[in-house]
Simulated scan of single mutants.
Amino acid sequence: MRADSVLAHRTALLLREPARAAETVARLTERGACAAVCQLIDFELPADTRALDASLARLLAGDFDWLVLTSVNTLRALRSRAEALNLRLMIPASTQVAVVGEATAAALRELGAPVDFMPLQDHSARGMLAEWEQLRAGEPASVLMPQADIASTTLREGFAARGWAAHIVIAYRTVPAPGNPHLALQAPAAAPELPEGSYLLAPEHLPDACSRLDAVFFTSPSTVENFLALIPAPPAHLALVAIGDSTAARLRARGLEPAATALFPTPDGLINAWEQSLRAALHPPR
């Protein structure tokens, strides 16, 4: 534990599947903080996968100049459907791949495919539009972008403005947890053993637990909505930390001001944002 950590003995609520929250829990522990892990959302493949399967076939045939992956889940959906169809998910050499951030890039490299573009400064759809030189140059291109059912229209509108032919397909759906096991995007992973002081929290116990929490990390607009369905009026002491601009915007749209917004959508990005907000509160500018 860092000796100067202002996070010591504080608890952050992580609204994720325990296995996906493990890295954030570990980073919090390193700084002397604890975590309460409560899964509110789950991810499912579409009930009808014909559109996704057809898009996958076109991708493997080399029909697109670019494949755009805005989350690890989009790649998981492609892999799941490829396995179901007895296909090998191999990105054609003629197709370049753009990813939104490091987690998606790592998943792509595990597949054996290179990353041709990733924004360096802003790991978001806005950052992709701002930093993507080929897109900004306006040269016509065709794009496949599998996405969530609740994805924003930022990239779609950006492609249209540059004259790119974008094929958008729903790769997965965001649903309240637990989802339908027959449509699960991936098999549930075993819950990791949590360090001392951290614990799992059932959604029905969340309202009673809020008084013991110091912060809540929102990793998507959907986590905002599902949290507020249970806690319509979060207590004033609870710091609301957003993973990025779209999540922060959703909080503001619901009348709540984020205590902090992460510069990068990573565990360290979220924790750093929370820590900096606490330091600013302890030492306000004169």
Rank of each mutant, 00 (worst) to 15 (best):
R10A: 08
T11A: 08
A22S: 09
G32W: 00
A33I: 00
A35D: 06
A35E: 02
C38M: 04
L40W: 07
D42T: 06
F43C: 09
L45T: 08
P46C: 03
A47W: 00
D48A: 05
R50E: 07
R50S: 14
D53P: 10
L59P: 07
L60R: 09
A61S: 09
T74A: 15
R76V: 10
L85K: 13
L85H: 08
R88D: 00
I91R: 12
I91T: 09
S94T: 14
A98C: 05
V99Q: 03
E110L: 13
E110M: 09
D116Q: 06
M118N: 00
M118W: 05
P119G: 09
L120F: 04
A125M: 06
G127E: 07
L129P: 04
L129W: 13
A130S: 12
E131L: 12
L135D: 03
G138S: 11
A141Y: 04
S142C: 06
S152N: 13
F159W: 15
A165I: 05
A171L: 14
P176K: 01
A177I: 05
P178I: 06
G179N: 11
L185F: 07
A189P: 04
E193P: 08
E196M: 11
G197M: 12
P203T: 05
E204W: 11
H205K: 15
H205P: 05
P207Y: 10
P207A: 02
D208N: 04
R212C: 04
R212M: 10
L213H: 06
T219S: 15
P232Q: 02
H237I: 13
A242T: 01
G244K: 06
L256W: 00
A259I: 02
A259V: 03
L263M: 12
P267S: 06
I271A: 05
S277H: 02
R286M: 08
R286C: 13
